[in-house]
Design a protein around this nucleic acid. Structure first.
Lengths: 273, 273
DNA sequence: TCGAATTTGTGCGTATGTATG
DNA sequence: GCATACATACGCACAAATTCG
């Protein structure tokens, strides 16, 4: 009989004790979701700690620890005597379509977007990547590590693989131009397409937490993408980890007939209120 | 200075004390991720507890609690004297494209897939949904709640909205036929398209945990989708919450030129080994 | 300027949960 | 199973800042 199987004392709002997740962390999640659902008033002010404590059925201390964690994350801001306020921060919309590019994707939504190469190496192809790129396992690949930022805040962490033969100069060209698209152009790829994208989500691992400056327990959305040239030949395989609380993906229909109304509807939904 | 900001003793593999998540739960997550990365051998056997304890830098007791929790979840199975084995369970691939439909999407990957309506009501349109459907806020909508299962395991929870005028008979037709597509056909919609899809991820809330039978702290991938008729007029707005550890989304390029090789590569990647 | 009410910030004692060896 | 150490949660009391009449 382990802790996980012990009888559970269930509190309000689905809080559970003795399941390995501290109450204050469950409450932090509850507040985070509550914000999206209109917990704060029109000025972004949260109910007082005493009310939140009552609502969650816990001591005020416990709520304070949760609020403190959210404040440390940049979600909330407490002011003595005044109250606790939501710091509004819009999520970046990252479009995914046939012509997905990082800088173009989030351009215009932040004052400054940058994508910087953090490292690059050569390595033999592992099975799934070789297969995606149409190569044999063991063939040499160039691996490029990349950190995407918007207004100085890290939002994505990507790893890309290129066939070593044709794209040997990619790291140098990427470092010089700061753009994968331009680096590929120098290798004779005047244009490319996103052939497929796979999306999953998991908890941030240690590297994600460090590089993306995430809180422990945060979520990353992971995309696995294959870019091909216009003839359909694979060029680049990449895996990108997005900070889930800072971005959302929007999948564009290629033959988009949707009127501006729908676009607005979707766009207006992002961010609290 | 609260508990959340106190100095942290960092252990191996990114484990942290005092961050509101018990070590055994962090280790359980670590093992879950490790399984995808080849932690188990070709027979699905995990390294012995003593080795795992060393790898994570914790006492064997702690690893045992983590394994016990995963066994209780159905991920692992321990056998005295033999070892601990992974119970293989592939992730369902849920394709998203212009012609996305639930049953068609996951059909063939599980012995039995079912999508059942759990409830339905009429309600006035809230701002973002009205806007997406091209209606005025306050106009009446039909809301349909739905639970998607594969082999009896819940994998998705969706909420759909339809304009009340044109689609008044949707709940009845859906209940009778068990298919949104057929229900729409009875309303004169012979075909429809997925115009846009927005993807985000967050921690499961109380309702997700209950309906999808998730562990506390689990992740849900959320899609917001708009379906239109072939003329581009909005028909249905839906929000779907997927259990992130049971599904992954694959975005299909409409003009897919990718050779079978790439498809294989992506397909082969899912699930452990 | 003065309080009174409200709200966040702080201290301390105690009980229980988690992790170690 | 046991002893030890630290993390989490509670209950109570009071201090400090803000708001409002």
């Amino acid at each position: 009989m382990t802790a996980a199987r012990k009888g559970r004392i269930v509190k309000k709002a689905g809080l559970q004790r003795g399941v390995g997740v501290a109450l204050w962390r469950q409450i932090a999640d509850g507040i985070r979701q509550g914000i999206a659902g209109g917990l704060a008033d029109e000025n972004g002010r949260l109910p007082p700690e005493s009310q939140l404590a009552e609502r969650f059925g816990v001591n005020r201390h416990t709520v304070r620890v949760a609020i403190s964690a959210l404040a440390h994350e940049g979600v909330l801001q407490s002011e003595q005597g005044r109250g606790t306020y939501v710091r509004r921060q819009k999520r970046l919309v990252y479009p995914i379509g046939e012509r997905t590019r990082f800088s173009a994707g989030i351009g215009g939504q932040a004052r400054e977007t940058r994508s910087e190469m953090t490292s690059h190496t050569n390595e033999p192809a592992s099975e799934p990547i070789a297969s995606a790129l149409g190569l044999q396992p063991g063939e040499m690949l160039i691996r490029v590590e990349n950190l995407g930022k918007a207004d100085g805040v890290p939002v994505s962490r990507s790893t890309s693989w290129f066939g070593a033969g044709r794209f040997a100069t990619i790291p140098e060209a990427y470092a010089r131009t700061g753009s994968i698209t331009e680096a590929l152009a120098e290798c004779g790829i005047e244009d490319y397409r996103r052939a497929s994208t796979r999306v999953e989500a998991r908890h941030a691992d240690e590297a994600d937490t460090r590089e993306l400056k995430l809180a422990p327990g945060a979520i990353v959305i992971i995309t696995h993408a294959l870019n091909t040239d216009l003839g359909g030949a694979p060029i680049q395989y990449s895996m990108t980890r997005f900070a889930a609380d800072r971005v959302e993906l929007v999948i564009e229909s290629s033959r988009a007939v949707a009127s501006q109304d729908h676009q607005d509807g979707l766009a207006r939904q992002q961010g609290p209120a």
